[in-house]
Simulated assay, not measured.
Amino acid sequence: MGQSKGWGMRGTFRIANLAMTGALLVALGACTAQYRSHGYIPPEEDLQQIVPGVDTRASVEDVIGVPSSAGVLRESGYYYVESEVRHFAWKRPEVVGREVLAITFDEAGVVNNLVTYGLEDGKVVPLTRRVTQTGDGDIGFIRKLFGNLGGLSADQLFGN
Rank of each mutant, 00 (worst) to 15 (best):
N112S: 13
S59D: 09
P52F: 05
A89V: 08
G65T: 02
V26E: 03
N113H: 10
L152P: 01
G109I: 07
G150A: 09
S153A: 02
F141W: 15
I41Y: 06
A89L: 14
G109S: 06
G97D: 13
A23K: 00
G147E: 12
C31P: 00
Y80F: 15
A70T: 14
I103L: 14
G147D: 11
F141Y: 13
H87M: 08
A108N: 11
L152R: 12
V100H: 02
M20P: 00
Y117I: 00
V100E: 13
I64N: 05
Y40D: 01
W7P: 03
V85H: 04
V95K: 08
L24T: 11
D155A: 09
R143G: 09
S37V: 09
G140W: 03
K144M: 15
I64Q: 13
V54L: 10
G159R: 07
Y80C: 02
G159T: 07
L149R: 06
E61W: 07
R57V: 13
I64D: 10
I41T: 05
K144Q: 15
L73K: 14
G65P: 04
A27N: 03
D136N: 11
A30W: 15
T132D: 10
F141K: 09
F141T: 07
A154G: 03
I64F: 14
M9T: 14
E99Y: 01
E75V: 06
Q48P: 01
G65Y: 10
R92N: 06
G6S: 09
Q156A: 02
I139M: 14
P52R: 08
V60G: 05
G22Y: 06
P93K: 07
S153Q: 13
D136T: 10
V60A: 04
G11R: 04
L114C: 03
I139N: 02
R57L: 07
L152M: 11
G147N: 10
S69M: 14
R57Q: 07
D138I: 00
H87D: 14
G77R: 03
V66A: 12
Y79N: 11
G140I: 01
G147Q: 09
P93G: 02
V125D: 14
N112H: 15
L24C: 12
N112A: 05
R10S: 10
V81R: 00
T128A: 06
G29F: 15
G29R: 03
W90P: 02
I103P: 05
D62I: 03
T134A: 08
P67I: 12
V125S: 05
A154S: 03
L101Y: 15
S69W: 02
E44G: 03
L119A: 01
